[in-house]
Design a protein around this nucleic acid. Structure first.
Length: 673
RNA sequence: AGCGGGGUAGGGUAGUCAGGAUAUCCCGACGGGCUCAUAACCCGUAGAUCAAUGGUUCGAAUCCAUUCCCCGCUACCA
């Protein structure tokens, strides 16, 4: 049983692209399936609004704009236009593509924040914040660098990015430094505002039971809903939406960004004479398509905000799995990235090919691996060999032998097959299973090829033209069904195919069920080829581009680490004396499970110490027992692989890690200087 | 070790939530066929102890328990 069409208004949104970088295939991982979904709804007779827009605020945009010496607004506009252009080229057709810096969004954000304040969900609290005395400013989020209070690693202000990955609330970071001038920051007290997320625990637990969408999103959220911390929702920035009544504060970007979904709906409704409130104030079906990295914001923070302000909460959250390039984690700086413009569209690839790849490679919630070789295989075998070839051979044969679509009825067997394919496809779309849907479509194309083959119309035409006409008519019917079914995935080529077959009306607004109504008898022209094979040469060329980028990135990274290594400053004798270096004797040594580098040692340095050393590759555990080593005794204790290490065994760290040892046996605990 | 994702034929991948009879699809290998079609297409064969062990069950890839192995946790990010 399908969820659609529904008598409730349906709104689809996509996670907003952040306007500080170019569009890559990772983005499309979310936007293309969302577009396919919307098209499939229309094919089921379901009207749906489809909104998205640029996320314009937040610290990274300000930092980035400062680096480029342009205004944040100029930076945002640049990328806003870029994304708009790419979406159009990729046939991702939003009802509206807005911008969170629009007056509508400022106004809507204000009104929602005020509603939250009036509802008692926002409270002020004085917190200690990093402040740069040199630049005379508070340092929000990424303006500050320091030490994570949880794991002790270098982190940026809003997140422990290099260590434990925890979200950091403003003021939590230790030993803060200003990212602009590099000077140490002071802490100053300032009043900020917090959203009482903790008050929504029970509500969210209940809400998540009814929330639709994909399990990867909802299961995570259920765990998070159990422990909720209030969120600081104000920042010391110029760029953003002003916090009501406080000219020196803007709201946190994760407040005004999702509100964009509402304000874009408003803008679209105003333009088309629609009513935005039917989506956001009354019973509706709001479906958010997102990347799984922003699940927390969409399943926890956002519904709580909507609930608190009296708006309709999402009906479903559909989270796509992440993207890999050649089986490697997607990474711009490491070169594992495929840009949609310069690496794809500019090379003349049709958007439909990539749309098919994204929809068909794997299930929507799993990791999608992009490789040019697989891309070529899928295009050549599936789009060209199965689908393109069937449409072409059918139309070509009919045109050549009949010149028109023959009269006659469609066999029940064929109609049954088409009907069951439509059912499977609709069912799959209902579950956001785009691979299942496209597999079912492709299966119909293969059925068509097999039908054509086994009924041998080329032989029938010579002896029984009537029987031949029946076969041809059936094939044309399958062809028509295929064009309708594939339209959400391959809108450009299916439009072409629809016109080529001479079918009446617009393929985009035609419904799936139209596939069961008889192919009208009329003149039929010769077909043009829809999909062409991709040559090996082209794929090699594309792979070379990717390889080159990875190599450049690798050499850059190497340079960078070498540079930081060379940066050794001179120290005084006093500073050296702080180091407690001693001779110790290894009492026992064993490998640590799960690590190929680490050994757990017990060392006597005048006292017994457990030390973890990364020397397993060059020293066997058994060989070490009884030997003397050099130990840094006053190292801050650390946990490696869950094993505590109190001290550090010194070694020459070249290509091989070689332990230092005293030239002669000395007493355990002897100081080194 | 923790957190997350995985382990299904030579490669990739579906099925796992809601257990059911010959385990899906694409490529590759092998054999055959067809000739309308973009050297496309169709049919067939071989190839998987569904990571392992134990349990629940009439029945387990699927549920439960334990173990092993692989990947990510360095930013930018959907």
């Amino acid at each position: 049983m399908s969820n659609f069409p529904s008598d409730k208004p349906v709104l689809i949104t996509c996670g907003l692209p952040y306007a500080n970088g170019k569009c890559h295939i990772g983005h499309l991982r979310t936007y293309v399936p969302a577009d396919i979904f919307v098209r499939s709804l229309r094919k089921q007779g379901q009207e749906a609004a489809f909104v998205c827009g640029s996320d314009a605020h937040g610290t990274p945009i300000v930092v980035n704009a400062e680096e480029q010496k342009i205004t944040p607004s100029e930076l945002v506009n640049k990328y806003h236009q870029h994304f708009e252009k790419i979406f159009k080229a990729m046939e991702v057709e939003f009802s509206i593509f807005g911008n969170t810096d629009s007056p509508t969004n400022h106004a809507r954000t204000n009104s929602i924040v005020e509603a939250l304040i009036n509802g008692g969900y926002v409270y002020p609290q004085v917190i200690r914040l990093a402040y740069c005395p040199h630049d005379e400013r508070f340092l929000p989020d990424r303006y500050v660098e320091g030490i994570c209070p949880y794991c002790g690693k270098v982190a940026r202000g809003d997140e422990c990015d290099q260590g434990c990955g925890k979200h950091l609330e403003p003021g939590e970071i230790k030993s803060a430094k200003c990212r602009i001038c590099g000077n140490p920051a002071e802490y100053r007290e300032q009043e900020h505002f917090f959203f009482k997320l903790s008050a929504f625990g029970d509500y969210l637990s209940d809400y998540l039971k009814t929330l639709g969408g994909t399990s990867n999103a909802i299961n995570y959220a259920k765990v998070w809903a159990k422990e909720l911390k209030d969120w600081c929702i104000t920042r010391n920035l110029e760029w953003g939406v002003r916090f009501p009544g406080h000219d020196d504060l803007v709201v946190y970007v994760w407040v005004d960004a999702p509100i964009g979904y509402i304000s874009f709906t408003e803008e679209w409704a105003n333009k088309t004479g629609g009513d935005w409130e039917k989506y956001w104030r009354r019973d509706s079906r709001i479906i958010h398509f997102i990347g799984e990295d922003i699940t927390y914001h969409h399943c926890i923070f956002w519904p709580a905000m909507l609930k608190g302000a009296g708006y309709t909460q999402p009906w479903a959250v559909v989270a796509s799995g992440m993207l890999k390039i050649d089986d490697k984690k997607f990474s711009k700086s490491r070169g594992f990235v495929v840009w949609v413009d310069e690496d794809y569209l500019d090379h003349g690839f049709h958007p439909d090919l990539l749309r098919y790849y994204i929809a068909n490679y794997t299930s929507h919630t799993k990791e999608l691996n992009f490789s040019w070789k697989v891309f070529q295989d899928k295009v050549n075998n599936e789009l060209v060999g199965a689908l393109g070839n069937f449409l072409h051979r059918t139309q070509h044969f009919t045109h050549k032998n009949f010149g028109a679509v023959p009269e006659g009825r469609i066999d029940d067997e064929i109609l049954e097959k088409i009907k069951s394919t439509i059912d499977t496809v609709i069912c799959a779309f209902d579950e956001y299973e785009f691979k299942k849907a496209t597999d079912a479509m492709m299966e119909l194309a293969q059925f068509g090829n097999a039908y054509f083959q086994s009924h041998e119309p080329w032989a029938l035409i010579k002896k029984d033209k009537e029987a031949c006409a029946r076969v041809v008519k059936n094939c044309l019917q399958i062809g028509k069904a295929l064009v309708l079914l594939f339209e959400p995935i391959l809108p450009g080529n299916m439009e072409k195919a629809w016109k080529q077959l001479g079918l009446p009306g617009d393929v985009h607004s035609a419904r799936f069920e139209n596939a069961l109504t008889e192919f009208p008898s009329m003149e039929l022209s010769a077909p043009e080829i829809l999909f062409t094979k991709i040559e090996d040469k082209k794929i090699k060329e594309m792979e070379a581009i990717l390889d080159k980028r990875i190599k450049i990135a690798m050499s850059k990274e190497k340079k960078h680490t070498e540079e930081t290594k060379e940066e050794k400053t001179e120290i005084t004798y006093e500073e050296f004396q702080k180091l407690d270096i001693r001779i110790g004797k290894v009492l026992s040594a064993e490998n640590i499970k799960g690590s190929d580098k680490l050994l757990k040692l017990e060392v006597d340095i005048g006292e017994k110490r457990q030390i973890v050393a990364g020397i397993a590759k060059s020293h066997a555990a058994a060989d070490l027992v009884g030997r003397q080593v050099v130990v840094m005794a006053n190292m801050k204790p650390a946990k490696l692989f869950g094993v505590e290490s109190r001290g550090m065994v010194l070694a020459a760290d070249g290509e091989e890690t070689v332990l230092l040892m005293p030239a002669k046996e000395v007493k355990e605990g002897t100081r080194v200087r």
